[in-house]
Amino acid sequence: MAAAPPLRLRWRFVQPDRIDVSDDRAQARTPHAADALIEVRGLRTVLGGKVIFDGLELDIPRGRITAVMGPSGTGKTTLLRHITGQLRPDAGSIRIDGADVTALPRHALFALREKIGYLFQNSALLTDFSVFENVAFPLRQHLDLPEELVRNLVLTKLQAVGLRGAAELMPSELSGGMARRVALARAIVRDPTLILYDEPFVGLDPIALNQVLKLIRTLNDTLGITSILVAHEFAAVARVADLVYLIAGGKVVARGTPAELTRGDSAWTRQFFGGEADGPVPFQYPARDYAADLGFPAGAASSTPHTEPRP
């Protein structure tokens, strides 16, 4: 088996920044010229006979927060699984700092993952362990640190997500939002170089949402961490993301800063950010004729609600 190319993930320290990113700052941050930490080329994935990606191409700039958005079922989580090597594509390549993830052997993949933090959509906390032990788990598994240092690191991260007081609770005693924040603390406990957030804002109340946004921005600014954010909440995404990719139909259909996408006049951006049912992305899952399903003659009913006034 060929040896994996050396990984060159590195730290980058930049000045702290405010969480509120104005349009001007966002323009300044536009990473068109920035070097890419992750390069996705010609990605093709077919799952269960359905084409998820069909020649997807995108770059994730180093040290920036990149949001990946798109309609449900368009493959955003699948993309994260490809990037972390959990799922191999049918074709194409994913390079992280030059190393092709699709070709890495298991031990090299594990070495790469030690530098990656991953926030799962459903938190994925270890149910046998307390909150403290969940956050301490990566430290205990990979580092031989004194217990006092482990305790300080864990409590620091729990303080950052506002759950230091919940350290002794079990995952079954947490609400969905609290579990997500614990999972976030676990994802960042080893100060990774790359963090992937899969739906980090689901279930968070406005206070927690604001703090999590602030944390994501601070991590990015102070440690230069590259972040990939999969989310549907554009208002929240717009507050932290430097770059947004809109994926639909297996391809990137729009790319730019949040401000650029908001102003965008393509059918994709109009429909997705305007929340319209009609557009290039069908609201209805492919189905048989609506009228026939209801027992009427085929073609007698529209598949979308009838909104015109009756005569």
Binding site: T84, Q86, F110, A111, R113, E114, I116, Y118, F120, Q121, N122, A124, L125, L126, T127, F137, P138, Q141, H142, R186
Partner: peptide, 22 residues
């Protein structure tokens, strides 16, 4: 099975912990 269903196995793999060994 429940660890698999709730992504705990996947989480271990993502934390570079081999679930076969652990």
């Amino acid at each position: 099975g429940l660890m698999r269903a709730t992504d705990q196995i996947a989480a271990m793999e993502m934390m570079a912990v081999d679930p076969i060994a652990y």
